[in-house]
Write a protein that binds this DNA or RNA. Structure first.
Length: 652
RNA sequence: GCUGCUGUAGCUCAGAGGUAGAGCACUCCCUUGGUAAGGGAGAGGUCGAGAGUUCAAUUCUCUCCAGCAGCACCA
């Protein structure tokens, strides 16, 4: 505690500074500037830290006072206060409910409760109503600092075991902050608003109920989590809900049906039945990737689907992932010893087998080996999600066998390679995460130090500062994850790049160095798309089904307006096909309105309408998806344009 | 896998303890129409699977399967 007569110097955003008595609060500071600011103030940033108006400031600092106009801070406070208000509402309605934690998340907050009865969707309405009552009461929000013993005995008296555990988990003997929203109290770091009436009562909504493990640990209690969203005003809430509605229309599962791309069914959960349209996307993408791999200096291989467990034991996958493998046994009556195989869940051990054939020289390195590798994994049922998380998938897999001093260069080259591909596919921006050593892992700490260091250095050298993702690496090495997001903003790891010193050791891969001795290669595991299934799912959602022309499964429909034009329609289709365009005729006995609507819904990028005029003039009327106006062009010109549009970006 | 919810025609959904309905899609007929649904007729369902309660179950109960949201997992 600062001495009583001590002063602190606070510097404002405009650069001016003023002296205050030590222990002054941001609320006092706001009041000293003007009464209107005192009323409008909601919090402050003090030396970069978000401060409650009621917290004392003991040292010289930079200070900025926030009002509801400061969206970032206002949202944080509103959402955080709503978490408390919701918990209070729940305990007022169901007093035997135990509270746990309730953090702010993107667009809102959640709070986890332990209650014997499940919450129902109707309960959400009840809770919301109670929350609005609390907001209308304008109850003061107050805070106190308690010592640990008092806090623990307080929560023991209240029979709130989760809070007791939380306090015990807070390191050191630091004092704990308690907050009151009216009479209702919660352990909380803060900051908060000054009274519940500051929360806009019409700009929040409880969204859903779901299960969540206490402390994220699947061995512990399953709690009930209620999610809410909140904003500074009801217009923003409305816009958010509207955005969610629009995003739902881009869901690849919905578009997959509407565009007749694929389906899935009970008999093969987590596996895709690709329809002609969907398979067209897939093969076009695969052709593109195959060209890229050649450009990138990869050799393409193919390896077996059914492989003896011995190989998976040797690689270490059996031990860690056995229950997630499809086991294949042959029921042969006279077999003395039944072989147990696994459908390959990944390609790396098989690639090492190819590397291990014959002797490899340092002159062969880096050896870049690629496979469109079909894998099967028995993913937990709850993990399955459309074609994004499946049990049967094909990776654009690749392994670079290299020496340690080639890691950096190969990583840099790979990041550049991946960036080009993502750009071609319509992803200008993507996120990169760096995941380091997990708790359960193979290999010594020295090896991990080396691998993490090399990967991080190469990434930074490539001009990328990755987001840190501690403890999330593979069991054999650290990884870079290239993350794309789906329609509603969920993250999906697509590309990956991993450094591995472990597998070459376990599977005894060697090369002969310049010194004539055997050396261990390093393996870089990498995939660009990740899996075709997931990437196509992301592509569909990113483009809302309106894929770039070269990837669109159906590129052009030539539609007749009158049946006398049918012959010419067929001719147009022939010309376009000869020029490498995926064209089809629609000469059904239907009105042009009907045809235009149907193919627009089917996301066909170009409709060429043909009536008496076009037949006469040897033209077509072009209508592009999403555009209202049409243009008349000569058959020759259109064929030329569309032929160019149909050319993949790497071949232009 | 866990918590909660859902499963009726190809799709979107309604329905009720007495064995099923709509719209769109589909088939046929009429219509030759100029840029997002022309008109008429017809066909189409063991109501996810199994068991139980009941005179009677698709409807109620249980188990299983699959899907959805979230959590956990993701080599």
């Amino acid at each position: 505690m600062a001495p009583k007569d001590a002063v602190v110097s606070l510097t404002f955003p405009d650069g001016s500074s003023r002296q205050f008595e030590a222990g002054v609060t941001a609320g006092d500071v706001a009041a000293s500037i003007s009464t209107s600011l005192r009323k409008k103030a909601i919090s402050a940033t003090v030396d970069g830290e978000h401060y409650d108006l009621a917290w004392p400031i003991e040292q010289d600092a930079a200070i900025a006072i926030h009002t509801m106009q400061d969206e970032v801070q206002a949202n944080e406070l509103i959402r955080h206060d709503l978490a408390h208000i919701m918990a209070r509402a729940v305990q007022e309605i169901w007093p035997d409910t135990k509270v746990t934690i309730g953090p702010v998340i993107r667009d809102g907050w959640y709070y986890d409760f332990d209650r014997a009865e499940p919450f129902t969707p109707e309960d959400l309405g009840l809770i919301e109503k109670k929350m609005k009552d609390i907001i209308n009461k304008r109850d003061p929000v107050t805070t106190e600092v308690w010592d640990r013993a008092r806090a623990i005995s307080h929560y023991e008296d209240l029979n709130e075991p989760y809070k007791v555990e939380l306090i015990n988990g807070i390191p050191g003997d630091e004092p704990l902050r308690m907050y009151w929203h009216g009479d209702w109290q919660d352990l909380c770091r803060g900051p908060h608003l000054q009274h519940t009436g500051q929360v806009p009562g019409d700009a929040f909504k409880l969204m859903s109920i779901a299960g969540a493990y206490w402390r994220g640990d699947s061995d512990r209690a399953m709690l009930q989590r209620i999610y809410g969203v909140a904003f500074t005003g009801k217009e923003k809430l409305r816009a958010h809900l509207h955005m969610l509605e629009e995003a739902a229309k881009r869901d690849h599962r919905k578009l997959g049906r509407e565009m007749d791309l694929f389906h899935m069914q009970e008999e093969a959960p987590g596996q895709v039945f690709w329809h002609p349209n969907g398979w067209q996307i897939y093969t076009e993408l695969q052709d593109y990737m195959r060209r890229q791999q050649r450009r990138g200096g990869y050799v393409e291989v193919n390896t077996p689907q059914v492989v003896d467990r011995k190989l998976w034991e040797a690689s270490g996958h059996w031990e860690k992932y056995q229950e997630h493998m499809f086991i294949v046994e042959v029921d042969e009556e006279h077999a003395r010893e039944k072989a147990v195989n696994a459908l390959k869940p990944m390609n790396c051990p098989c690639h090492v087998q190819i590397f291990n054939q014959g002797l490899k020289s340092y002159r062969d390195l880096p050896l870049r080996m690629a496979e469109f590798g079909s894998c099967n994994r028995y993913e937990p049922s709850g993990a399955l999600h459309g074609i994004m998380r499946v049990r049967g998938f094909t990776q654009d897999d690749g392994h670079i066998f290299c020496s340690e001093d080639q890691i950096e260069e190969e990583t840099a080259v790979y990041i550049d390679y991946l960036s080009t591909i993502y750009r071609d596919l319509g992803f200008e921006k993507f996120r990169v995460k760096f995941s380091d050593r997990p708790e359960k892992r193979s290999g010594s700490d020295a090896v991990w130090d080396k691998a993490e260091e090399a990967l991080l250095a190469a990434t930074r050298k490539a001009g990328i500062e990755p987001e840190m993702n501690p403890g999330e690496g593979a069991f054999y090495g650290p990884k870079l994850e290239f993350v794309l997001t789906d329609a509603i903003g969920r993250d999906w790891q697509c590309g990956t790049h991993q450094v591995d010193f472990v597998l070459p050791e376990r599977l005894d891969a060697t090369f002969i160095g310049a010194d004539g001795n055997k050396h261990r290669p390093v393996m870089l595991h990498r995939a660009c798309l990740g899996s075709f299934e997931r990437f196509i799912g992301i592509l569909i959602e990113e483009h809302a089904g309106k894929l770039p022309f070269w990837l669109a499964p159906r590129q052009v429909v030539v539609a007749s307006i009158i049946s006398d034009a049918n012959e010419y329609v067929d001719e147009v289709v022939r010309d376009l096909r000869a020029a490498g365009v995926r064209a089809e005729a629609d000469t059904r006995n239907e009105k042009i309105n009907y045809k235009v609507r149907e193919h627009s819904v089917g996301k066909v990028p170009v409709i060429l309408a043909v009536g008496a005029r076009e037949v006469e003039e040897r033209t077509v009327t072009v209508r592009r998806l999403g555009e209202k106006q049409t243009a008349v062009e000569s058959l020759e010109a259109v064929t030329k344009t569309l032929s160019r549009d149909a050319t993949p970006p790497d071949l232009l």
